[in-house]
Write a protein that binds this DNA or RNA. Sequence first.
DNA 1: TATGAATGAGCCTTCATTCAT
DNA 2: GATGAATGAAGGCTCATTCAT
Lengths: 195, 195, 195, 195
Amino acid sequence: MRDSAKARQIIDAAIRVFARDGYFNSRVSDIAREAGIASGTIYLYFRTKDEILVTLFREKMAGWVALARRELRGEPDAVAKIRRLVALHFSVLERDPELAEVVQVELRQGQKFFRGAAADEVAAYFDLIASVLEEGIAAGQFRADLPVKVATKMLFGAMDQMATSWVLGKRRYRLSETADAVAAILLRGVASHGV
Amino acid sequence: MRDSAKARQIIDAAIRVFARDGYFNSRVSDIAREAGIASGTIYLYFRTKDEILVTLFREKMAGWVALARRELRGEPDAVAKIRRLVALHFSVLERDPELAEVVQVELRQGQKFFRGAAADEVAAYFDLIASVLEEGIAAGQFRADLPVKVATKMLFGAMDQMATSWVLGKRRYRLSETADAVAAILLRGVASHGV
Amino acid sequence: MRDSAKARQIIDAAIRVFARDGYFNSRVSDIAREAGIASGTIYLYFRTKDEILVTLFREKMAGWVALARRELRGEPDAVAKIRRLVALHFSVLERDPELAEVVQVELRQGQKFFRGAAADEVAAYFDLIASVLEEGIAAGQFRADLPVKVATKMLFGAMDQMATSWVLGKRRYRLSETADAVAAILLRGVASHGV
Amino acid sequence: MRDSAKARQIIDAAIRVFARDGYFNSRVSDIAREAGIASGTIYLYFRTKDEILVTLFREKMAGWVALARRELRGEPDAVAKIRRLVALHFSVLERDPELAEVVQVELRQGQKFFRGAAADEVAAYFDLIASVLEEGIAAGQFRADLPVKVATKMLFGAMDQMATSWVLGKRRYRLSETADAVAAILLRGVASHGV
DNA sequence: TATGAATGAGCCTTCATTCAT
DNA sequence: GATGAATGAAGGCTCATTCAT
């Protein structure tokens, strides 16, 4: 549980195993073997198998949000931030295909992703998107009457489905290359006038 | 499968049980009790517990696509069709909250939804969306250079996330009431000029 | 249960099915299909699946013993009777390979064969063998101090193993052709002097 | 299989349970309770319930054949060896009545005994018998024209039926006391002249 | 800390048998 | 008598978790 090299080692092993076999088909002993430790050792760092998945996700998602926040800070306005956000969303997943498999496919089990322990991190990401939209509205770049909550979900959903389709299509193309097109459509959708 | 009345009875019971307890927490005997039959009877109509979930989804999704196709036929142009599609997507789920729970949450397990046996039906829905986009492009309503595949995924993703958030938020508002706003954003995103 | 063409039809189907798949791998419905009737019909003639096996065996064994008794009656002395008995034992099985498979392999399950409902018929066959041995002793052909019970079991065991090996060896030779050799060894074993 | 002590503990428990209740009436959990371990532990040493039976048999039979080989080595000629073999065959079973019950009754299910995984050990026992017969023929003690394969099966069958009858008769007498009579009949059967 | 043998709760599925038609 | 859809008991096996070392 405590931050530790061993915990990270376990999480990294879990990502590989979950990506390969799926969460339900993976045994704790598989993760242990992949990590090169005894299965009992895992329970010194995680209370349950489920907690591995949740922790995995929380850590990755928290890092993701932090990264996004940092990156967006450098962008001049909401439009640029949306473009950056899409590019980042895609490149993070593209850079780590095993993580992508786990996040887009395995993590959607039951209610673990949007509900569950990871809900805070997802909410933070939603908040980040919403804040960019608010900023755009304030700056007059986005429609004044834009329903922000709705638009936030739609933006996330659109990006998420792009990622899911890419993963399920065995990543046969470069996800990043679609970023501009995606951002363009999203921006037109929310813009106060033609962009 | 053979006796469609009994099979439907089982599927309907399964929807209620899965919606209440989740797929993995549901025992076959729970479905049987809910359907008012013996658990062995289920195996006269379905080979495995898994097949119940898959059949459930295929039937519902096939009906959904057929309904959408029929409804869209009556609309005059692509813009109207997109509006209709969003309204339909939302109203189908809103009318059957238990189905919504199953489709948006339980069905996303592992690879059963987009991959797996249900892939054909999902693909048919994607095709339907794509065909509307093509029609809009041909009619000059949507951008001539619109990347149809990308836009298709984004449209589906946006609607899907709206539905998921609504389900996870315990359906505390009327999903249908967001349809106009969603359609508006989608249409602006793909329109050839400000709509 | 009652003697009837249908009961015989079921038993004959059961022999074929048991010989092909083994008793435990055979379902009652398999027997029904092989017999060309509904599975429920079987229960009009037999109380349980087990009873099919037992009845099958009792009928075949009773017929076998009756046949043997009849045939031996025509033989002049104990030596000729032993020869006849061996030849008959082998030819009965050889003439009906599926019955042989069932009797030598499938029927030996648990305690159904020597113990169980078929015990009487087996005992009758043992008695028949014993009576021939007694006759031979009385006639001076067999050792006066021959332990009849022991010899009876040995004779049966020797013939039985010959049959079992022949069945397990996929009946690649003619069992009957070994009858003379078998009878010769048996007769020397019990004879009052070199035969 | 790995830890021979624990595996032996399980096998010994299985012999007691199978002898008492029969193989099919025994649950894996019964064996576990008898062995004083958890039922899951059994699966650390055996893949299936079936494998327990097969392993049980292979180990016992292998030990039996090894013992017989060793004992026969000390005997001066084929006649003495046959006598020793019969005595040994009977005393092994008599010394371990529960093993006898399992080997003579439970193990004959379907094709596990003569066919199946135990076939090698049974074949080794048959080979041992055959080699003694060959030796006796070479030494002139047994008939020169003795059909060895046939005689081997008959010898085994005769001993086996003696054992089976003894087990089924609830072991109401001492099997060993019949050894001399059995050996005498067998030897007369194969001898080159009156013995 | 680390190990890995041991635990034991949990459940899907089969199929002999029943019975309403 | 005949049917075959329906029943429901039964148990082998898995694997997350524990704990003695």
